[in-house]
Write a protein that binds this DNA or RNA. Structure first.
Lengths: 233, 233
DNA sequence: GTTCGTCAAATTGGATCCAATGTTAACAAT
DNA sequence: ATTGTTAACATTGGATCCAATTTGACGAAC
């Protein structure tokens, strides 16, 4: 039984997000520690972290309570991600675009272009696109040279669909999924174009819309019940 | 020697922010614990928290390192606060303004009006205004019904001047400080007016500008070296 | 003289132990 | 029967102990 360092945190997070722990469930340190076969110390640390992530609330003297994530909550997180990443791209323009950043972004675009060159899609290619997507967004946040953006985003990072690390897709309609992701990739092109042209406000608006688009497809797919989540971590 | 629960975290945070711990200083658990006269457990938890706040970075296997907050960093945090609070007010409008929220906001405005009624200012009145200001901003964030905004803001909450809980003022120019804070208060009026009128985009823009204004006066005062920080906690 | 290997010191992470505190239930008295 | 008081229990927070891993230095061999 190999216990990774972050295992406790990840396991608890997954239990909450998957619904294994229902909203309002109270979590105490000792039972949780026994359940996971670890001592109370890592559990205590994990609880603190999950509280800061907004997944748990602390009840004074009575442990922690699960704060279920509603669809509204996810929508709110996506909105937050939109304005923060929008700020990032605007600040890239305002502070002056570093040439190396532009070339890195163009590499991301090129890698995506190659992926979309043939009009077929399977899980492996989606996995690859998730990684490209992650790199692209990561570049922009880092490129903004505003560390506060990264830290503010960090909290949403683990929420399903509020994070760029997670994409849901419908495995029964790969054709449609191709269209959707290709559209997202085209938005990436437009964003880079706006940045390169020094159009800060346009880049910001595009970035917000980009987040919204992800949310829309999430709602669509989640409603159909045919979702499958792919994450890179 | 009464040790409060959060004492360790607060003490370490103050040491970092006050410059007692210089940028790049490495912090190990044991020396810190001995310095503060506590065991390693609370120190460990505090380090984790400070890492999430962005004040420390973790060096793998070599403890933590102080990430000094530069002026650029503060400016970045203020910008983040601007877009997030801007989002909050926009969403208040978009989701439909609750009547109770509007009345609460108006109470904040009225309390401020009374404070500014006579054209004198002292430290006690500033203290009172800081509290009113905090309530006002808190109302807006809570009123957005978007919990992600609150959690994202939470991280900046402890940074000087990136937080609404801290106002700097120049004790040698109370006249000027009166003007400055009164201007901020007038912005509050405009924001409430925009919200009440359903002008989401205008409210958002005003909110961003409101954050910028705070930053401008901070830079002005900090440069003069005559600053005094008032915090409520 | 340089490089590689081994050993010791440092340091973090996890486990268990102890103290403090609040909550709940039971029992007794009115 | 109801209410108040007390005692036991549950639960968190802090301290110390133990294990694992890495870093750095010193020495030996090439």
């Amino acid at each position: 039984m190999k216990k990774d360092k972050h295992a406790v945190l990840s396991i608890l997070r997954d239990k909450i997000l998957s619904g294994a722990l229902a909203q309002g469930d109270r979590l105490a340190e000792i039972p949780t520690a026994e359940l996971l076969g670890v001592s109370r110390t890592p559990v205590r640390i994990a609880f603190r972290a999950l509280e800061q992530e907004g997944l748990l609330t602390k009840l004074p003297r009575r442990g922690y309570q699960v704060r279920q994530i509603t669809n509204d909550e996810i929508a709110g997180s996506v909105e937050v991600r939109g304005v923060l990443e929008g700020l990032a791209v605007r600040q890239i323009v305002e502070k002056g675009l570093a040439p190396t950043l532009l070339s890195t972004l163009k590499e991301c675009l090129k890698a995506g272009d190659e992926l979309f060159a043939e009009r077929t899609f399977n899980e492996a290619k989606i996995q690859a696109y998730v990684e490209i997507n992650r790199q692209f967004h990561d570049c922009l946040v880092k490129g903004s040279q505003n560390h506060a953006i990264a830290t503010a985003l960090q909290i949403n990072e683990h929420l399903p669909m509020a994070s760029v690390n997670a994409l849901v897709f419908n495995p029964e309609q790969t054709e449609r999924e191709y269209e959707r992701l290709y559209y997202a990739h085209q938005q990436h092109h437009a964003i880079v174009q706006a940045i390169a042209a020094g159009q800060g406000a346009r880049a910001e608006a595009l970035m917000k819309e980009h987040a919204q688009a992800a949310l829309n497809s999430y709602e669509q797919i989640a409603a159909s019940g045919l979702s499958k989540t792919i994450r890179t971590e």
